[in-house]
Computed example of a mutant assay.
Amino acid sequence: MSTSKRQMRLGAFIMATGHHIAAWRHPEAQADAGLNIDHYRELAQTAERGKFDLVFVADSPAGWDRAKDPEALRRTAQGAHFEPLTLWAALSQVTKHIGFVATASTTYEDPYLLARRFASLDYISKGRAAWNVVTTGADVSKNFSIAGHPAHADRYERAEEFVDLVKGLWDSYEDDAFIRDKESGVYLDPDKVHLVDHKGKFFSVAGPLNVGRPVQGYPVIVQAGASEPGRELAARTAEMIFTANQTFEDAQEFYTDVKGRLARYGRRPDELLISPGIFPVLGGTEAEAQANYDHIQSLVHPSIAWNILARHYKGID
Rank of each mutant, 00 (worst) to 15 (best):
L73Y: 12
H81N: 10
A72D: 11
E232Q: 13
I98G: 09
P84T: 05
F162A: 00
L91A: 07
A244R: 04
V258F: 02
P70S: 11
G63F: 14
H81T: 06
L85R: 13
I124Y: 06
A16L: 06
E249G: 00
A153V: 15
L35I: 09
Y112T: 03
E253C: 03
L195I: 05
R128D: 05
T135Y: 02
D270F: 05
T247S: 13
A22H: 00
E288R: 02
N132S: 14
Y218F: 11
K68I: 01
E286W: 05
A31D: 15
P280A: 08
F56T: 02
F144D: 08
R264I: 11
A23Q: 10
D189P: 02
A22D: 06
A22M: 03
V134T: 06
K167D: 00
D65V: 13
A89W: 10
D139G: 03
A90G: 06
I37A: 10
A244D: 14
Y265N: 13
S125L: 10
R236N: 08
S303G: 05
L91V: 08
V133K: 00
G185Q: 00
S60R: 06
N143Y: 14
L299K: 04
S105D: 04
Y40G: 03
W131L: 08
L43E: 00
Q252D: 13
H194E: 02
R268G: 13
V140G: 04
G137Y: 04
D69L: 07
E271I: 00
H152Q: 14
M1N: 12
L85A: 13
W64V: 07
R75I: 04
K96D: 15
L35G: 15
R75T: 04
W131C: 09
Y108R: 04
G200T: 01
T256W: 00
F13V: 08
L165C: 09
H149P: 08
R158I: 01
I37L: 15
G148P: 13
M240H: 08
G207K: 09
F13Q: 06
S60P: 00
A289D: 06
P208R: 03
Y265E: 10
H198I: 03
G63C: 02
A238S: 15
I296D: 03
E271G: 06
P276A: 07
D53R: 03
D110F: 12
L169M: 11
H194V: 01
T3S: 15
P276Y: 15
A159M: 02
N307Q: 14
D294G: 08
F203A: 00
G315P: 06
